[in-house]
């Protein structure tokens, strides 16, 4: 065991899986000598050479397009997109190509690859270094979407994603890259995809969330506890495939649901959670399902602190649900 930040855990996961599986190659902008602008790929070129971790020209469609070709051939590419906000030139390669390859070829060709990308706000990065684009990708059949919230999960989920037979978008909450440390095992280990985690057990209200919002919700849960409300937090870890059972079990217990996400509310992942619970667990609900989300505006710069859901806004929703 070593204590690591989430960022170090990602780095450790990459190092260990590259040792374990020589099909794994890492590439993207500034990932080589610079070790990534966040340092997630630090030391990989040194340890494994320039054929297994290398810089690319500045073209995201190129990065993902070549990853598709490598994956089809039998490699395990792990391309990095420097910020999730810059993934859109590659949208076509991800959505039209990687995600549909297995289906459209009747299983003749498959595209196992992991696109790692830092996402989310809270770093004063304005709208092109802060967005949470998960909904676009969760709307794409054939793609898996994973979001860790702890160092331990980050490494284990990354390794599971790389070993998965399908393309995975691995969204790294950059706001908490360095904010906490946790014991992380050395060597490869897996945290299974599609399994949520109960980040906090409680009986009065369920919060379903993921990524950097988990710690915000934990703070709100403490504040709620001081006011006599017992909050349970379900950290999804994988958005697709979704652990419906964990959500429904928790809601059956608490009878109340608050969904928390950074992304804008309209047509968002939180909407999907709400719909599933409304369809499958309405009989348990004692209050309307509430969503705490980013506003339906582009992500701002100066007013980031107003835009981002914080513990206050989460607490307000918890209180509304409990006192309904």
């Amino acid at each position: 065991m070593t204590t690591m930040t989430l960022l170090q855990a990602v780095n450790s996961g990459l190092k260990d899986i590259m040792q374990d599986d020589d099909r794994v190659v890492v590439f993207g902008e500034d990932v080589g000598i610079n070790g990534g602008v966040f340092r997630a790929t630090e030391g990989l070129t040194k340890q494994y050479g320039e054929e297994r971790c290398f810089d690319t020209p500045l073209a995201e469609s190129g990065i993902i397009g070549v990853a598709v070709g490598m994956a089809l051939y039998g490699m395990r590419p792990v391309p990095e997109i420097q910020f999730a906000d810059f993934i859109f030139p590659a949208f076509d390669q991800i959505v039209s190509e990687a995600a549909k390859m297995r289906y459209r070829s009747g299983g003749e060709f498959t595209c196992p690859m992991v696109i790692r990308t830092p996402y989310g706000g809270g770093i004063r990065g304005g709208h092109y270094h802060s967005q949470s684009p998960e909904a676009y990708f969760c709307h794409t059949p054939g793609l898996k979407v994973v979001v860790p919230s702890t160092p331990y999960d980050a490494k284990g989920l990354l390794i599971s994603s790389i070993r998965d037979e399908d393309p995975v978008l691995f969204l790294e909450p950059k706001r908490i890259y360095r904010s906490t440390k946790q014991d992380v095992p050395e060597g490869v280990y897996e945290v299974p995809l599609g399994k949520a985690r109960i980040a906090r057990a409680g009986k009065d209200v369920t919060i379903v969330t993921f990524g950097a919002m988990v710690s915000i919700c934990e703070k709100a849960a403490e504040d709620a506890a001081a006011k006599g409300m017992d909050v349970e937090i379900v950290d999804l870890r994988t958005l697709l495939p979704l652990d419906e059972e964990a959500i429904l079990t928790s809601v059956a217990k608490t009878g109340r649901l608050v969904v928390v996400q950074e992304a804008p509310r309209f047509c968002s992942f939180g909407g999907e959670i709400s719909a599933i619970v409304a369809e499958k667990a309405i009989e348990y609900l004692q209050a309307p399902i509430l969503r705490v989300a980013g506003f339906d505006t582009p992500f701002p710069y100066s007013l980031e602190h107003v835009y981002m859901p914080d513990a206050k806004r989460v607490l307000a929703a918890v209180e509304r649900a409990v006192h309904f």
Binding site: V37, G122, I123, R124, H129, R175, E304, H305, K312, A316
Partner: peptide
Amino acid sequence: QQERLLALEKAQGGAEIDKNAAFPL
């Protein structure tokens, strides 16, 4: 959404600026 935010700010005060937030690139 605007109305709700302004009401919440009135009731609880505005959101706080995260002093730890710093742009890394």
